[in-house]
């Protein structure tokens, strides 16, 4: 069950020839250095000599053209092609740049990065402010919900925090008021209702404590906090308020679509207005 060794042996960067291209490759170099991963640079579109040379130049500049790193240049529908490639190449982490907010049209159609994050079968890192001089992540906010995927997500977050020498990891447990309200039936006496509520929260706390006991956190400062509110919204809001630089969440249990954007839940709250860079941890088949 535990995440052993390097979680990200193969990292793919979705390359678009936008003004952020240079910064994305600088971030890729840092990831390459920290994880010692094999890098794949995926661009979907027609090959042009100018773009090919520009990419070569950037890869050389960031020392990413060495070893077994690869450039994959394909034509086709971007989202589906990238997803197919990540499966074909057995990618562990897909990295893409993303704007903090989607425009209304993009909200309906979904921009490429967000569409990928809703569909891709590997972990995905959305970088909101890639920099040509990346500093890594100093404060990680991690989902600590009672869910089978959480153990792996916390292990991955701790690994990243260790690699980037992050200062703080905040693990947030979200108490859904809707579910708690259902527990508080009018049929129960005040003390019975409170007893049940406490029992549920205690069980969740114990599970999280057990996960943390089994995770090698080293010298990391790990904070656990319980916040009441809608799952997804609360943690996203917390990351914004605390100026975190990476929000780490579980991957969705099913593919998300337009209805999930209209009636948002969990990860959709973060995707609607990214508070910082977002890492969606998708457990490897053997991990869960």
């Amino acid at each position: 069950m535990r995440n052993e060794g390097n979680s990200f042996a193969k990292i793919a960067i979705a390359v678009a020839f936008s003004p952020r291209c240079e910064a994305m490759l600088a971030e890729a170099r840092l990831l390459h250095q920290r994880f010692g991963a094999q890098m794949f640079f995926i661009h979907i579109g027609k090959k042009s000599l100018q773009e090919e040379q520009y990419l070569k130049h950037l890869l050389h500049r960031f020392e990413l053209d060495k070893g077994n790193n690869q450039v994959v240049w394909e034509e086709g529908e971007p989202v589906e092609t990238i997803i197919a490639l990540t499966q074909q190449l057995d990618i562990d982490l897909l990295v893409a740049g993303a704007l903090e907010k989607e425009s209304l049209i993009k909200f309906v159609l979904g921009d490429i990065s967000r569409q990928l994050s809703r569909k891709v079968k590997c972990s995905m890192l959305l970088l909101t402010e890639p920099s040509t001089h990346p500093k890594g992540f100093s404060h990680l906010v991690v989902e600590g919900t009672d869910h089978p995927k959480t153990e792996n997500t916390i292990a991955v977050a701790v690994e990243i925090a260790n690699q980037y020498l992050a200062g703080t990891v905040s693990i947030i447990q979200e108490s859904d008021p809707g579910k708690l309200a259902l527990i508080r039936s009018e049929e129960l006496k005040e003390n019975e209702a409170e007893e049940r509520r406490e029992q549920i929260l205690k069980e969740e706390d114990e599970k999280l404590e057990e996960i943390l006991r089994c995770t090698d956190c080293g010298n990391l400062k790990v904070i656990t906090e319980r916040i009441e509110g809608k799952p997804g919204y609360v943690i996203s809001n917390y990351a914004r308020l605390k100026n975190a630089d990476l929000l780490v969440v579980n991957s969705p249990d099913k593919q998300l679509n337009l209805l999930d954007r209209v009636f948002p839940h969990d990860i959709e709250y973060a995707l609607a207005d990214l508070p910082c860079s977002l890492l969606i941890v998708h457990p490897k088949e053997k991990a869960i």
Partner: peptide, 8 residues
């Protein structure tokens, strides 16, 4: 009624 529970 929690719409997110239905969706999830």
């Amino acid at each position: 009624v929690d719409l997110s529970i239905i969706r999830k």
